[in-house]
Design a protein around this nucleic acid. Structure first.
Length: 256
DNA sequence: ATGGCAAGCTAAGCTTGA
């Protein structure tokens, strides 16, 4: 089973760059999207339905902002928009959606950026702490978990092109990296890093100063699987050739 | 240390992003 995660940075902009054609060629079973920046009604979903996907959308209250989705060729048993039913917390920025299948659950998550202001940096840490609590609870009920998305944190120096210059950059702050370590220690495996120990593999590049051509990037998009799924990881690839966004897609293939 | 690019809202410039 092939599962993609992709921060598309505006799905309507992505479609103008051929995202649908590219997606059709990947033959993926499930796609986790982030930063869709649209309501379902604003998107020509029939393009994706024609490929065999059912599409599920969780959008922000603010128009054109944030938003996640999951496209699936397999009918889920259950769809959870946000996490209010478990945590009582609203998801006004449209950052979480979950599909439950018979043998595993998949979450598409867009964790906040902390780069805009000190307030957003604090918000990010609070949001992540709440998400941690949600997952700590969920793993007891759904032990087979795939948590895919834009975590907005580089975990280790190998995951960023210039760790020294970015020591004070949101996305690579010590407290953010420590949070991601604690999250992994709940019992998750970073599927790409599990299979590939090489440096210089990134999933996001600044639009500025030709960063992508120079591969000056950050690895902030992850497929994290819970320990019980670890032995089902067959492949994990960063698909840097796809250029519909400032991020690129990441693939994980799980044995059925 | 700074600035650089893009999407989308709303109607020329602002907000957000990492």
């Amino acid at each position: 089973m092939k599962i993609l995660t992709y921060n598309i940075n505006g799905i309507r902009a992505g479609l103008k760059k051929g995202f649908d054609t590219w997606l059709n060629a990947t033959q993926a079973d499930i796609i986790c999207l982030q930063e869709t920046k649209a309501l379902k009604e604003q998107v020509p979903v029939e393009l994706f339905e024609a490929m065999g996907y059912q599409t599920y959308w969780q959008s922000a209250q603010k128009k054109g902002y944030s938003g996640v989705a999951i496209f699936s060729k397999i009918t889920p048993q259950n769809v959870v928009y946000g996490y209010e039913e478990e945590t009582g917390l609203d998801d006004p920025e449209g950052r979480v959606i979950r599909l439950d299948f018979s043998d595993f659950s998949v979450i598409s998550v867009y964790m906040p950026s902390g780069s805009s202001s000190d307030e957003r940096r604090d918000f990010k840490m609070e949001w992540n702490a709440q998400f941690y609590e949600y997952i700590a609870w969920l793993r007891q009920h759904k032990p087979n978990l795939l948590i895919s998305g834009d975590y907005n944190i580089c975990h280790k120096p190998i995951d960023i092109h210039n760790p020294k210059a970015n020591a004070n950059s949101s996305g690579f702050l010590p407290e953010e990296r420590a949070w991601l370590s604690s999250f992994v220690e709940l019992g998750f495996v970073d599927t790409f890093r599990h299979l590939n120990g090489e440096p210089h593999h990134y999933t996001w590049w600044s639009y500025r100063a030709g960063a992508r051509d120079k591969n000056l990037g950050w690895r902030i998009d992850y497929h994290m699987v819970s320990e019980p799924l670890k032995d089902r990881i067959e492949r994990a690839l960063i698909l840097a050739e796809a250029k519909h966004s400032d991020h690129c897609p990441v693939l994980v293939e799980l044995s059925v």
